[in-house]
């Protein structure tokens, strides 16, 4: 089944199945992804510029900044949730999710 996904309102949020699914301004901890020199980068997602579906996982392109060291960068495909039986289930932004982190 095709899941419609899109970024809306200047990248403020991600729509999945025509409903608000993920908002900007959450902080995502990244332990293995090489975002900055911090052991764990705590990346504030300032806005989204892309969203895509990889099998059942929804991933976003985001502009972000580490709130501890201030490094700024873009992330091309940050997983933010899954579609299970047609329903979107968001990952918890504050939780480490090493196995889901994008490749550096």
């Amino acid at each position: 089944m095709t899941v419609p996904v899109r970024t809306l309102d200047d990248g403020a949020w991600i729509s999945v199945n025509n409903a608000r699914a993920v908002s900007n301004s959450d902080i995502w901890p990244l332990a293995s992804y090489d975002f900055c020199d911090c052991d764990v980068a705590h990346v504030l997602c300032e806005s989204f510029f892309d969203v895509s579906v990889h099998r059942d996982t929804i991933a976003v392109g985001a502009v972000g900044q580490c709130i501890d060291c201030g490094s700024q960068d873009t992330i091309d495909a940050l997983p933010v949730g899954r579609v299970i039986d047609g329903e979107f289930r968001a990952f918890e932004p504050g939780a480490l999710q090493a196995v889901n982190e994008p490749q550096s």
Binding site: A19, R20, G81, R82, I84, R89, A90, F91, E92, P93, A95, L96, Q97, A98, V99, N100
Partner: peptide, 11 residues
Amino acid sequence: AADESPTPADD
């Protein structure tokens, strides 16, 4: 209202 309930990540 949006359903904000998250799903735990796999780790």
